[in-house]
């Protein structure tokens, strides 16, 4: 399988504080990769580096086969990003948001038109084309935000706690979208605080104090830590290290 993220001995220091301590991992094409860890474990730092927003102190990393030191522009062109905090402009309509992000990623107007129609049809949101994002229910917003994040067919999409504060049904519907994207060959790199969501990932890495303490399929992790579920795995790792 093709590696879309390759990380070797990645270190990021802020002064004397080591936020990322020699990270090593690969993520494969079409994989749903769960990136877990306690608050302050260094997830956000690592994610910023992989998105080309921050340079590591040392080590190597390739995202979509581009070097994150030298080819940040190409990296950015080949990834999508969505977080709970920022996704779409609330004061623009659905169509205006799509037009804006298409412009950012250099999608031609003709392509955009076609893809936009398909997207709205697939999501069943055709009637909302000219509604302001701010007026839509949270569940719709999220679906749209995700669809816009992968509108330019990136190789990888980074999701930073995409389901925080969402009701259980909407949360699960959101995961349906993640599975669909993965079926289309888009790699999904996701952080979450819901441990049940960790189970939906193909593989999960758990960070603690800047290091990756565990990385495997949920199945194997549960065996390895003789735990009933991922919640227990997580607690065991976090408590052991402390």
């Amino acid at each position: 399988m093709e590696k879309v993220i390759e990380v070797r001995n990645l270190v990021k220091k802020f002064g004397s504080f080591v936020a990322n301590d020699h990270l090593n991992f690969d993520v494969y094409q079409g994989e749903i990769f769960g990136f877990l860890g306690a608050n302050g474990a260094g997830k956000t730092t690592a994610m910023k580096i992989l998105c080309g927003l921050s340079s590591p102190t040392s080590g190597e990393a390739k995202v979509a086969s581009f070097d994150i030191y030298k080819e940040t522009e190409k990296v950015k062109r080949n990834i999508g990003y969505m977080s709970q905090k920022f996704s779409l402009y609330e004061d623009l309509t659905v169509a205006e948001n799509i037009r804006f992000f298409s412009g950012v990623y250099g999608i031609s107007p003709a392509d955009r038109k076609e893809k936009q129609d398909k997207l709205l049809k697939d999501l069943g949101l055709e009637s909302a084309r000219d509604s302001l994002i701010g007026s839509l229910p949270l569940g719709w917003k999220q679906k749209l935000a995700f669809s816009v994040a992968i509108f330019h067919d990136p190789k990888i999409v980074f999701l930073d706690e995409p389901t925080g504060g969402v009701d259980p049904i909407t949360r699960r519907k959101f995961w349906d979208l993640i599975y669909e994207a993965s079926d289309r060959g888009i790699t999904v790199f996701v952080t979450t605080h819901y441990m049940d969501e960790a189970e939906y990932c193909n593989r999960v890495s758990i960070m603690n104090a800047g290091r990756i303490e565990a990385l495997d399929t949920p199945e194997n992790l549960k065996k390895q830590y003789s735990a009933k579920n991922m919640d227990e795995v997580f607690l065991k790792i976090a408590r052991n290290v402390d």
């Binding site: 504060g165 605080h193 976090a238």
Partner: peptide, 10 residues
């Protein structure tokens, strides 16, 4: 406990 990791939540 929103936005807090599983350990701190516990």
């Amino acid at each position: 406990t929103t936005g807090v990791d599983a350990v701190s939540r516990k």
